[in-house]
């Protein structure tokens, strides 16, 4: 019966490959899901005297959107974020400006609209590393107690909003 072993082994591999076709090997899952959001205190774009910290948002469900003025996909996502901000049904969005370019960030928001309740300025990228950011845009959902509940890599479109975010937000009572 050992003569059937090679075939059996191959079929097992095919099973894995089939499953593999539906997976994305480049996606890095966040180790923060279910853990406390990393703390930081950063000056805000537009007003260097003011500071923002995640503790400021305690008590409500909120979203952290990591973006940058030079990021093309962020511009695409921007429209949806504006719509969400105006709708008032979505949780507040904090926009972390990743890696310097404060002036460009300010100009872009002035020109295209600001969907964010605060825009902390991560000049060095240190906070990005603390949150495990690998690129822009990335969006986190944090609950009332400051625990990270969701991370999405890449721009959000209507489909992703409806299918991934809305159910999670409902679950958190947003």
């Amino acid at each position: 019966m050992k003569r059937w072993l090679p075939l059996v082994f191959f079929m097992v591999l095919v099973g894995f490959f089939t499953k593999g076709l539906f997976l994305n090997p480049r996606e890095v899952p966040s180790p923060f899901i279910g853990k406390a959001a990393p703390t930081f205190s950063l000056p805000v774009v537009g007003d260097a005297q003011k500071a923002f910290s995640p503790a400021d948002m305690k008590g409500q469900v909120w979203m952290l959107n990591v973006w940058a003025p030079w990021c093309v996909s962020c511009k695409v996502e921007h429209k949806l974020l504006m719509a969400l901000a105006e709708s008032r049904t979505a949780p507040p969005i904090v926009g972390l400006n990743w890696k310097d370019k404060t002036r460009e960030a300010q100009e872009l928001l002035a020109r295209t609209g600001n969907p964010y309740v605060a825009v902390p300025d991560d000049l060095s990228g240190r906070v990005g590393i603390d949150w495990g950011v690998t690129g822009t845009p990335e969006t986190y959902v944090i609950d009332r107690n400051g625990i990270v509940r969701l991370k999405h890599v890449g721009p959000i479109d209507m489909d992703i909003w409806q299918n991934k975010f809305v159910p999670k937000l409902k679950e958190l009572g947003a």
């Binding site: 890095v28 899952p29 180790p31 923060f32 990393p38 590393i129 603390d130 949150w131 495990g132 690998t134």
Partner: peptide
């Protein structure tokens, strides 16, 4: 690094 990016890194 692994506490921020997971074992993937």
């Amino acid at each position: 690094l692994t506490s921020r990016y997971g074992d993937f890194v």
